[in-house]
Design a binder for these strands. Structure first.
Lengths: 166, 166
DNA sequence: GGCTTCCGTTAATGCGGCTGAACAACACTT
DNA sequence: AAGTGTTGTTCAGCCGCATTAACGGAAGCC
């Protein structure tokens, strides 16, 4: 039976696996911010209840989460006491929205993933992809979706590859 | 001031944003399974303490998490009471490991992301990418990393794109 | 044998994120 | 003015995932 003294220590394999938890913003936080963004551009205002309804959570949960977001300086209130994104909040919301858009389009249009799955996968990963990675993925897509012979060749090769591997 | 009767309902925007929480396995669960997998192939066995040490968490946390994994039928014990992955557990661990490998290589070798960031991003997303998306991404990489003139052209175009967008 | 070390589990606690229920404040209707 | 409905907040509770502390058992050493 192995004891501490006998066993070779495999220590420190990756150890950034915990960065997942420390990720700012969290998945739910990101969606609160995006909800406010959407509501303000669609309705012209955003209240706690509207956010709760859009995200399909209870008003209590929205109230508590939003007070956290205010503490962090990502959300404020306008003179009419409607919810408002701060500069920082807007920056985060925009980044996550762009990440979602890039990922969803990449999965669907480049990889040929079913639309629903593409959206679901993108939604799960949107807040986790770093800005740099997102930018570079954008560049690859501009390349692969362009109307050039090169891009068309890649897309054709992809279709063959997929036919073979599925 | 808007009330419920006056406000147009924006309801049901996406609503699969919650799939994130329901994701099986969770990020930490996936890493428990992979730790057992690595330990068994490196040391020949895996105990609760080894897992805790590898993941740099307390023994208590490992103990409780592993009992959950046993309840779910993903982890068992061999005759010597060492930890063992069940068929299902092995399947999940392998899938997540493959997803990590694919994502990390895609970010680093195709997108040209810095190695550390590529690993960190991949580690955060590994358990969230569906198998289908992973397979297709694999196919794209086989295409883009192949030793053909076509692949070389894409890589060159990527380098130009990145130079312009950074 | 007895002592120490290591192993695994349990208990109390904390944080994030949700629910449901209760409640005060306010608005709208009549 | 009285009654109804909406809003926002707070509270108790649950779950996931971690912590530290304490404890019982087994392995190894003298």
């Amino acid at each position: 039976m192995p004891t501490k003294s006998a066993a070779p220590k495999p220590k420190n394999d990756g150890s950034y696996w915990r960065e997942f938890d420390r990720n700012k913003p969290s998945h739910s936080m990101a969606h609160y911010l995006m909800a406010i963004d959407h509501l303000r551009s669609e309705l012209g205002y955003a209240r706690s209840t509207d956010v709760a309804e859009m995200l399909e959570i209870s008003r209590g949960a929205a109230s508590m989460a939003l007070s956290q977001l205010k503490k962090r300086g990502w959300v404020g209130e306008d003179p009419h006491r409607f919810l408002l994104l701060t500069e920082e909040g807007k920056r985060i919301a925009t980044l996550v929205e762009e990440n979602f858009s890039i990922l969803a389009r990449f999965f669907e249009q480049v990889l040929g993933v079913d639309r629903d799955m593409a959206m679901a996968d993108a939604c799960k990963m949107e807040h986790l992809m770093s800005m740099d990675t997102g930018r570079r993925l954008m560049a690859l897509m501009r390349c692969l979706l362009s109307d050039t012979a090169l891009a068309e060749k890649v897309r054709e090769q992809m279709r063959n590859h997929q036919g073979a591997s599925l």
